[in-house]
């Protein structure tokens, strides 16, 4: 667990994150499912809950994803990300609450017509060849023979499997299988793509390719719902994120808001003593103290000049006073860590 100064026992309130601006499309905090009138959200869930026996995988998930958004769904393993995604595909029945894709229940097969999906474990019928699988899924999605003949080679090429379509999936490496899974998800030109850990088996080059692919999809107006615990991936492509832990959303909002929500100052001094911590505590909350460096969470960076003057007049030698922009990873670790400790 992260070292944390005991001076700050209270977990950072999630509501401290900036609320979505009025009139914004982010509607996590609205109780009801939108979807009547105006643009129908690509994804809308309200109070979604799933329990497997006594284990609750998902508590009260309420979120809305608008068409064209790239939405990152973040959380540690076992946080309920995959369960949520499976509910959105009609693979798992919710224990409570409601889910809608483009305004319809995912349990209706027709509602899934515009949806592409890459499963977490991307396992496919191994006896088939890649091209046969694409053909089968194309038929299931209602693509005509002409469309399949055009689309299948195009997609194999697009995901880097050109010339490998006639090999059996059994012979594919994990990375190739995941690429095939991405091709399957995009086969029928869906309006909404659900990707569950899409780069888990890919090397750095493959990861970059997937990022580009997601950007292309977004540019083409496709909504992307991305499950991931790889934060750099999410940071690079997502417009908005929700962080889930133990089945609950612990933070959500536009990426910039999340990252900019909490300002921190890193203070480097010649010594750290109790008086210093008291002095710093009047300007913000001490997040951690390591050696002679103290990290201070502040409401605004405007406290920095005053703080510098006071430190010097109190006799401390000030080596540095640096604003720290929190990365998504910092926020993630803080939020997830807090819940785990709590």
């Amino acid at each position: 667990m992260s070292r944390r100064a005991s001076a700050d026992p209270s977990p950072r309130p999630v509501s401290g994150l900036r609320p979505p601006p009025a009139g914004s499309s982010s509607a996590e905090h609205e109780g009801a499912i939108a979807g009547t009138g105006g643009s129908v959200p690509a994804i809308a869930t309200s109070g979604l809950r799933k329990a497997f026996g006594p284990r609750v995988a998902l508590h009260d998930l309420t979120l809305t994803v608008q068409p064209g958004e790239v939405f990152g769904f973040l959380g540690p393993n076992g946080a309920g990300k995959t369960t949520a995604m499976k509910i959105l595909l009609g693979l798992v029945r919710p224990s409570g609450g409601e889910a809608r894709i483009f305004g319809r229940s995912p349990a209706e097969p027709a509602a899934r017509r515009r949806v592409g999906y890459l499963p977490e474990h991307f396992r496919f019928q191994e006896w088939a060849t890649g091209a046969e699988l694409l053909d089968f899924h194309g038929r299931l999605s209602g693509l005509g023979a002409g469309e399949r003949a055009e689309r299948i080679p195009e997609l194999l090429e697009r995901v880097g499997l050109a010339g490998r379509g006639d090999e059996r999936v059994r012979r594919y490496s994990k990375g190739m299988t995941q690429r095939l899974g991405i091709a399957l998800a995009l086969l029928h030109r869906p309006d909404l793509v659900l990707l569950d850990e899409p780069t888990s088996a890919l090397d750095p080059v493959g990861r970059r390719e997937v990022r580009e692919l997601v950007r292309e999809l977004a540019a083409g107006g496709v909504t992307v719902f991305l499950n991931s615990h790889l934060l750099t991936e999410v940071e690079a492509v997502c417009h908005r994120v929700a962080i889930v832990n133990q089945g609950r959303v612990v933070a959500s909002g536009p990426l910039d808001d999340l990252a900019g929500a909490v300002a921190q100052l890193r203070v480097l001094l010649d010594r750290v003593d109790r008086e210093l911590l008291a002095l710093l505590g009047r300007h913000g909350q001490v997040v951690r103290a390591e050696g002679t460096a103290v990290t201070l969470a502040v409401d605004t960076l405007d406290v920095a000049p005053d703080l510098a003057r006071q430190l010097i007049s109190a006799g401390y030698r000030l080596y540095g006073l640096v604003p720290v922009q929190q990365s998504l990873e910092d926020i993630f670790v803080d939020l997830v860590g807090e819940v785990r400790e709590g």
Partner: peptide, 17 residues
Amino acid sequence: PEIDSGALHAVLARPLS
């Protein structure tokens, strides 16, 4: 076996009852 292997997930996510 298709449920166990997970191969069914992608299939039943299609518009197939």
